[in-house]
Simulated assay, not measured.
Amino acid sequence: MRQYTIHHDGVTIPVSRDGEGRPLILCPGLLTTQADLRELIELLRHDFDVVSFDLRGHGLSSAGDRYSFDAFLGDFTALMAALDLPAPLLVGHSLGADLIVHYAAEHPDGFDRLVLIDGANPVPEPFITEADLPEFRAMFNDPALLQEAEQAKGTPHQILLTGPDILDLNLEIDSVRAEILDRYRKFDRPITMIMSTSMAGDSTEGRTLWRNQNWRNGVDRLVRELPHTQATWLDAGHDLLRTHASDIVRIIRGGNES
């Protein structure tokens, strides 16, 4: 394994590179670290030269003075410039998927294809409405979760974002996804979507059922409008990178061979 350090916007970002083959950049999602993706990276490295990293305020990266979408995108763009790899495959999960779509829109010739895992979805309606805010505020300020985050500081799994940081970013992602179709229209490279059937949980009632249907409606919309997009649904939750790593690698390999 080769290791690098990228410095951007006052943040230090650790980068790891492992394996042989075509270059693949793995962009993690919100609250996910390189350490969480160990199994996926181990499977991918047999076919790809895998580059992984931690987002600012995650894992072994240092804290940032802001945790906005533009801040994360700036870090990713700096990473890509530093690596300067020829036509890499870009793989992103959740927030990471949105980041690579925005990067692709600005650099339409700077990558081979995209694999979007449970993210970058042009959902018809925002996930968090005004009525949902109390529920999400309570979720992101759960004392047990805050204690767990505190205990993880200084470890490969650390998360330095606060509950309000996370909520604000989720609200911003809703706004980003409301306009993401315009980003997709700026490039025409192949897109593979790997989506979870239970993104919001496995309840068949109330807001959970609605959120999961909204998620599916967004993907159906994208596939309808962009013929170079293929979608595969996995019977999984939003943590499918951990629970379905082998399925994800199989789908990525299949697209690599086509």
Rank of each mutant, 00 (worst) to 15 (best):
N121L: 05
A104H: 09
A97R: 11
E39D: 14
P28E: 08
R224N: 15
L114P: 02
N217L: 13
T197M: 12
R177C: 06
P143I: 00
V91T: 02
F140D: 03
R2K: 14
Q3H: 13
F111E: 06
M80Y: 00
P143N: 03
H244E: 09
T33D: 08
P14T: 10
T229Q: 06
F140S: 02
A81R: 14
F140P: 00
D202E: 13
N121W: 04
S62E: 09
G154P: 03
L95C: 02
E205L: 09
G163P: 00
D165K: 02
E205S: 12
P190H: 04
V101R: 08
N212C: 05
L167I: 04
S258Q: 12
I252E: 00
R113D: 02
L241V: 15
D182F: 03
P156F: 05
M199N: 13
H244L: 06
N217C: 05
T12Y: 08
R45D: 04
S52W: 03
D18Y: 08
N217A: 14
L145Q: 11
H8M: 01
S16V: 09
V115T: 09
D70R: 14
D142A: 08
T192Y: 05
D65F: 03
L181H: 01
D84V: 00
R207V: 10
H7N: 14
H58Q: 14
A105Y: 06
F69Y: 14
F127G: 06
L89Y: 05
A152E: 10
S198N: 15
